[in-house]
Design a binder for these strands. Structure first.
Lengths: 193, 193
DNA sequence: GTCTATAATACGATAGAC
DNA sequence: GTCTATCGTATTATAGAC
C-alpha cells in the first residue's frame, strides 16, 4: 500500500470517527464521510468494503489513542492516585464536548447495543482498557482485593456524570462532580504513611 | 374520538414505546410498529402524522408511568430514606432489561442528542421528574442546602451503573452496586435521632 | 375509519470506464 | 488507484378507493 493510500485511509477513518461521535453510527452516511474526508464518492469502497469495516477501523483508532494516553499518564505520574486524578481531570477538560455529544465510548456502546448488538463486543474493548488500567492503579493504592470493584465504580461514576452532563447540556456539572471524585480517590488510598 | 380509536391509538403508542427502547428510535420503522401493534400498514397515519409525533406520544406515555410510580412510592413509604431505597430496588429489579438495552431514559436521550438534538428537550422531561422527586426526598433528610446536588449525584450514579451493566451485559453488577448505594443513603441521612 | 397502492427520497453497495 | 453512473432496497409519507 502506497504512502498516499495510507494517508487517504487515515483521513477517512478520522473523519468517520469524528462523525460517528457527533451524529452517531446510524446517523452518519457514506456521503457525510467522503465529504468530510475530501475523497470522491465511490472511491471509499477501495479502502473499505462495508460501512461496518469503517466502524471497526474507527474503533481500532480509538483504542490506539486510549493506549497512548494511558501510557503517557503512567510515564508522567509515579503516584497511582495522581494517575487516577489525571483521568478525572481529562474527563472534566472535555466537558463541553460531553455536554453536546456525551461520552464517545458510552454513547457508541449505547447505540450499538440497540441497533447492532453483534458489534457491541468491539466497542466494549475501549472500556476494557480503562478497567484494566484503573484496576492496576487501585491495586497499587493498597486495594488489592477490591481493586476491580473500585475500577468499575469509578468508571460508572464518570459515565453517569457524563450522561447527566449531556442530558442537561451542563458542562459545569461535570467539572464540579469530578472534583468531588478526586476527593474520593484520597479516601480510598490505603497505603501506609 | 371513539372508544375503538382510543384503544388502537394506545396499542400503537405502547408498541412503539417498547420498540424504541429495544431497537432505538432510528432503528424502529413504521412497518415494525404496525406489525407489533397489529394495525394495518397505512392506517397509522390516521393517528399520527409523522414518526416524531409517535415519539412524542411515547414520551408522554412514559412520563405518565413515571408520575404514577413516584406517587405510589410517596403513598407507600412515609420515610424519605425508604423512598430513595425503593428507587434503587426498582432499578436493580430491572437489571436484566438494563443489561440488554440499557436505561430507557438515558439511552433515549443519548440517541436523540446525536440524531435529533431538537427533540432532546422532550426526553429530558423524564429526568426532570426524578430530579424534582429526589430533591424533595433529600430535603426531607435534612439536606436542604445540598438536596439538588445529592439528587443529581444519585441519578448520575444510577445512570453510570446501568451504562456499565449494559456494556458488560452483567445484570449482577447493577444488583451489587445499588446495594452499596442504599448504604450511602443512610450516611447522607442528617435527621436528628 | 379502514386499507392498498405507490410516490419520493435516501441509503449502502456494485460495475466498470479511465 | 481514481472517479462516475447507477442498481436495489428500505424508508417515511401520500393519494385515494372502499
Amino acid at each position: 500500500m502506497s504512502r498516499k493510500s495510507d494517508r487517504t485511509r487515515n483521513q477517512i477513518v478520522q473523519a468517520a470517527n469524528r462523525l460517528f461521535y457527533r451524529s452517531g453510527y446510524g446517523g452518519t452516511s457514506f456521503t457525510d464521510v467522503v465529504a468530510a474526508a475530501g475523497v470522491p464518492r465511490g472511491n471509499i469502497y477501495y479502502y473499505f468494503r462495508t460501512k461496518d469495516d469503517i466502524l471497526h477501523a474507527a474503533i481500532e483508532y480509538r483504542l490506539e489513542v486510549i493506549r497512548a494516553m494511558l501510557d503517557e499518564w503512567n510515564r508522567k505520574f509515579a503516584d497511582p492516585a495522581d494517575r487516577l486524578k489525571r483521568f478525572l481531570q481529562v474527563v472534566a477538560a472535555s466537558r463541553h464536548a460531553m455536554a453536546q455529544w456525551g461520552c464517545p465510548m458510552g454513547t457508541l456502546n449505547t447505540e450499538l447495543g440497540k441497533a447492532r448488538p453483534e458489534l457491541r463486543a468491539d466497542s466494549r474493548r475501549m472500556f476494557d482498557l480503562f478497567v484494566a488500567w484503573m484496576t492496576e492503579q487501585f491495586a497499587s493504592l493498597g486495594q488489592a482485593e477490591h481493586s476491580r470493584a473500585h475500577a468499575l465504580r469509578l468508571l460508572a461514576w464518570a459515565q453517569g456524570l457524563t450522561v447527566l452532563c449531556h442530558v442537561y447540556a451542563d458542562p459545569e456539572l461535570l467539572a464540579r462532580e469530578t472534583r468531588e471524585l478526586e476527593r474520593w480517590i484520597d479516601t480510598v488510598d490505603a497505603r501506609p504513611r
